[in-house]
Computed example of a mutant assay.
Amino acid sequence: MADTESQDVRLPDEMPSDRVADLVELVVCGLVDDIDAVSLDVTDAMEGTLIEVTCAPDDAGKVIGRRGRTIKAIRTLARALGARVGTAVDVEVLG
């Protein structure tokens, strides 16, 4: 029987934060109407990774959600994956 645990496969030039950014981009693009306006700026530092999400002004509210619930959930997912790949993560929406 084959081992069903996932392998940590990473390209040589890929940073751990790239996997987290891919997850954030996937979730954000699923929420917004104007997918072409979505861009991520990933800044890696010694203390962790900052992912700044830029989107159309009309879509910023969808990404943030009522009382910030949606962005809080996105941050929770990003931080959980960040902990798994070994980096602290913070996500900000620039709208």
Rank of each mutant, 00 (worst) to 15 (best):
D44E: 15
L11C: 09
V38R: 07
A73Q: 00
V53H: 04
V91L: 11
I74F: 02
T87R: 11
G65R: 00
L94P: 02
D18K: 06
G95Q: 02
T70G: 12
L77I: 12
Q7I: 06
R75H: 11
A2I: 15
T43L: 12
L26M: 12
D18I: 00
K72H: 10
V53C: 03
L31W: 03
R10C: 12
L77K: 06
D13H: 07
T76E: 00
T70E: 13
M15D: 15
D33S: 13
V38G: 11
T4M: 04
A60W: 04
V53A: 01
A83I: 02
V28Y: 10
A21Q: 01
A78R: 10
R75P: 07
A80V: 12
K72M: 12
D22F: 01
I35S: 06
G30H: 14
A37L: 08
L94A: 05
L81R: 09
P16A: 01
E52M: 14
A37V: 08
P57D: 01
C55Y: 03
A45M: 04
D44V: 05
A73E: 03
C29M: 12
L31S: 01
L81M: 05
M1P: 10
G30I: 04
D58A: 15
R10L: 14
M46A: 11
A73P: 00
A45R: 13
V63H: 02
L50H: 07
L40T: 02
R66A: 09
D34K: 01
D33W: 09
D8M: 08
A45K: 10
V20A: 07
G86A: 03
A56C: 04
E14R: 03
C29G: 02
A45S: 15
V20Q: 08
R84V: 00
V85N: 05
E47L: 09
V42F: 06
G95R: 01
A2D: 14
R69Q: 07
D33H: 13
G95E: 12
G86M: 02
G48V: 00
L77T: 03
G95V: 10
L40G: 07
T76M: 03
D90H: 08
G86L: 04
Q7K: 15
L11A: 15
E5K: 08
T43I: 15
E25F: 01
I64L: 12
R79S: 08
L50T: 15
R84G: 00
C55A: 12
E92I: 02
G48S: 08
I74R: 08
T54G: 14
G48F: 05
A88E: 10
R19L: 12
V42E: 03
M15G: 14
V24K: 10
R69C: 02
V42L: 03
V9F: 08
T70L: 09
A37I: 11
I64G: 10
K62W: 14
D33E: 15
S39T: 13
D13K: 09
V28P: 05
T54R: 13
V42T: 07
A88L: 00
D58H: 13
V27G: 02
C29F: 04
A37R: 02
R67P: 04
A45E: 13
R66N: 09
E52F: 07
A2H: 08
A45H: 01
I35D: 09
T43R: 10
D3S: 10
V89E: 08
R19S: 10
G65W: 11
V9A: 10
